[in-house]
Amino acid sequence: MKKASLIKMAAFLAASFAIQLSGAKAALAETAEANYALYCVQCHGSAGTGKGINAPYLAVAPRNHTSDKDMSSLTDDGIALAIKEGGAAVSKSTQMPAWKSVLTDAEIKDLVAHLRKMCKCSFKKP
């Protein structure tokens, strides 16, 4: 009897954990890699170095996401704000649009982590 209760409890916990996992997956619609490949690469380039197909036509060069020097001067919140609200929100170029109409907050958070992997850096206080 006791053993059966324990088994039931374990099954309940496992099911709850599975539901939580699938919920998290549903909230995050696309991976950061996939979002970067469509929305960012057109200007920032497939290598993230700022050499996208549109870059030659932009008045201000797109940021090099692989540059430790450039990226470590930015906070995670600042990067997220630039993606969500556009360059103007962080006193940068208006050529960087606000992506909040296509990316969720969770996807933007994931993109920030992806950018940190690209630059292999974190924010450093100047």
Binding site: Q42, C43, G52, I53, Y57, L58, A59, T94, Q95
Partner: peptide, 18 residues
């Protein structure tokens, strides 16, 4: 200048291609 549509669209012979 403001919206930079030419960043992605070719306008009057000049501009982006995506």
């Amino acid at each position: 200048k403001t919206e930079a549509c030419n960043g992605c669209h070719r306008i009057e012979g000049n501009g982006g291609v995506s």
